[in-house]
Every structure is written in structure tokens, then in C-alpha cells.
């Protein structure tokens, strides 16, 4: 996901940069541009059309949905300055895990990274709220929970681990 996003972003950035460089190159030449306003209108229409498609595609299934059909496992997580308190050490592979996140003091950010350090999912964790987030793991290993909202002087030390295991030991 992240690499695709980076590639798309770099492409778009390069595209915009190209138009600027081209115009800078052509500056001072005194081009006659009769159709500039028509081009602008078309450009706006294209942007709107692309936006509509992207919006629909990206929101067709609600990214924050925690609805499940079939088996699932619930894990309770509490963030506090500066540690994560996770009530399960092992979670099963292959079916949705729902994390119920609480904050004991200040706002934290619950982020899960895979054994390669790639961020898989996150949610904000706020005092007074239980924020739920769902993820289905497909690879066993040791996963890390990191803090993704600045929460004070040991923010970067707020790291815990849990294991994803192949056997369905913790199933409900």
C-alpha cells in the first residue's frame, strides 16, 4: 500500500513540477493563448470527475468498519504514559481481530507494525472513548504496537509486542 501511495504521489508531484518547468522555460516568449479559459474549465471538470471516482471507490467500503461475520477475536488495549497494556499475548491468524483501545491519561495513537516494521493499521486512542479498529493478520510472527500520537517525553518508548500464531488457540 505505502509504496503504491509513494509512487502515485511522486508521479503527480513530478507532473505538476513538469507544467511549472515548462511554463518557466516558455516564459518571456509571449505565447498567444486564446483557449486558456476553456482549458481551465476542462481542467476543473477533469479534476471534479477524477475526484468523484476516487471518492466513491475509496469510501465504497467504510475504512473504519469493525463489523464482522463469522469468528473474531477481541483484544483490549490501554495506552498510558508510556506503555501499552494489552490483554492478550497471542492472537490467531486468518480471522478479524478487533482492538478495543482505551487511553488512561492523554491521547495516544495505536499503531500496529508487522515483523518487517511496516505499519498495518492505526487509530487514535483518546481519554473517555473506546476506539475500535479491525485487522486480519495473514502471517504469523511478532508484531509491534507503537504510539503514533505525541504523548510526552517518552513517546517513542511506548512500544509493546504481541504474537500472531497459526493455530487457533485464542479463538472465541
Amino acid at each position: 500500500m505505502q509504496m503504491t501511495v509513494l509512487a502515485i504521489a511522486l508521479f503527480l508531484m513530478a507532473l505538476i513540477a513538469y507544467f511549472f518547468i515548462a511554463a518557466i522555460w516558455a516564459s518571456g516568449a509571449g505565447q498567444t493563448m486564446k483557449n486558456a479559459e476553456r482549458t481551465r474549465s476542462r481542467f476543473i471538470l477533469v479534476l471534479l470527475a477524477v475526484g468523484a471516482v476516487v471518492t466513491i471507490v475509496s469510501l465504497k467500503s467504510w475504512p473504519h468498519s469493525v463489523a464482522v461475520t463469522g469468528p473474531s477475536t477481541t483484544v483490549n488495549v490501554t495506552g498510558l504514559q508510556w506503555a501499552w497494556d494489552i490483554d492478550t499475548e497471542e492472537v490467531p491468524i486468518g480471522h478479524p481481530i478487533i482492538f478495543n483501545t482505551h487511553a488512561a491519561d492523554v491521547t495516544h495513537g495505536f499503531g500496529v507494525t508487522d515483523p518487517d516494521g511496516r505499519l498495518l493499521v492505526q487509530t487514535q486512542v483518546m481519554p473517555g472513548y473506546v476506539n475500535q479498529v479491525k485487522y486480519t493478520f495473514d502471517r504469523p510472527g511478532t508484531y509491534k504496537v507503537i504510539c503514533l500520537e505525541y504523548c510526552g517525553a517518552a513517546h517513542h518508548d511506548m512500544i509493546s509486542e504481541f504474537k500472531v500464531v497459526a493455530q487457533s488457540g485464542a479463538e472465541q
Binding site: 505505502q2 501511495v5 504521489a9 503527480l12 508531484m13 505538476i16 511549472f20 476516487v54 495513537g109 492505526q122
Partner: peptide, 22 residues
């Protein structure tokens, strides 16, 4: 203008889920 591209991409909920606060 160029900075708006990564900003808009990050402004999508699905992308934000793995990009926010990185």
C-alpha cells in the same frame, strides 16, 4: 501546488490509516 498532491492523498481515510502521523 506540488505539496498539495501528497496532502490530498493523505487526506483519504484508507491511505491515512497507514500514513497518518508517519
Amino acid at each position: 501546488s506540488i505539496g498539495s498532491a501528497p496532502a490530498i492523498i493523505d487526506g483519504m481515510i484508507a491511505v491515512n490509516k497507514v500514513m497518518h502521523n508517519t
